[in-house]
C-alpha cells in the first residue's frame, strides 16, 4: 500500500515523524492483541479495529507518507462515532475513549508540514 513512496528517495527523514510512527505501531499492536482477546471473550470489536488503524498510520508515518494522516483521520472519526454511540455525552466515560486518540490526532496533524515537504 505504500509501494509508490519508495520511488522517491527522501531528501531527509524527519526523525520526530519516524518516532511517532513507531509509537503508533507499538500502541496499535497492543490494542490489536488485547482487542483480539476481547473479541474471543465476546466483547467489542472496536479495539482490534482501532489497533489496525493505528498500526497502518504508524507504518505510513515511518515511511513519511501523507496517507498516514488520512488513515488516522478515518480511525479517529470512527473512534468518535463509536464512542458517541457507546456512551454519548457522559464525559467521564469519554475520557479513555477520546482523550488519548485526540492527542495522537494532534501529533499526527503536527507531522503535516514535514510530510508536505517530503511529498513535493
Amino acid at each position: 500500500m505504500v509501494a509508490h513512496s519508495t520511488t522517491t528517495v527522501p531528501r531527509h527523514r524527519n526523525w520526530a515523524v519516524t518516532i511517532l510512527g513507531w509509537v503508533c505501531v507499538l500502541l496499535g499492536l497492543l490494542l490489536l492483541a488485547g482487542g483480539v482477546w476481547l473479541i474471543v471473550l465476546g466483547g467489542s470489536w472496536y479495539y482490534a479495529l482501532a489497533g489496525i488503524g493505528l498500526i497502518a498510520t504508524g507504518l505510513l508515518l515511518t515511511r513519511q507518507h501523507m496517507a498516514a494522516v488520512w488513515v488516522y483521520l478515518v480511525t479517529w472519526l470512527g473512534t468518535v462515532a463509536w464512542a458517541w454511540w457507546e456512551v454519548g455525552d457522559d464525559w467521564w466515560m469519554q475520557v479513555p475513549r477520546l482523550l488519548a486518540p485526540t492527542l495522537i490526532l494532534i501529533l499526527v496533524l503536527l507531522c503535516l508540514p514535514a510530510l508536505y515537504r517530503r511529498g513535493r
Binding site: 488485547g34 466483547g43 467489542s44 479513555p96
Partner: peptide, 22 residues
C-alpha cells in the same frame, strides 16, 4: 455493563474490559 470499563487511555480501558469479560 462492558462499556463501564474505564481507564485513562484506550489501553488500560481495554485491560479492564478484558477483566470484565473474564
Amino acid at each position: 455493563e462492558p462499556k463501564d470499563a474505564w481507564g485513562a487511555t484506550p489501553l488500560d480501558q481495554l485491560w479492564c474490559r478484558i477483566q470484565f469479560h473474564r
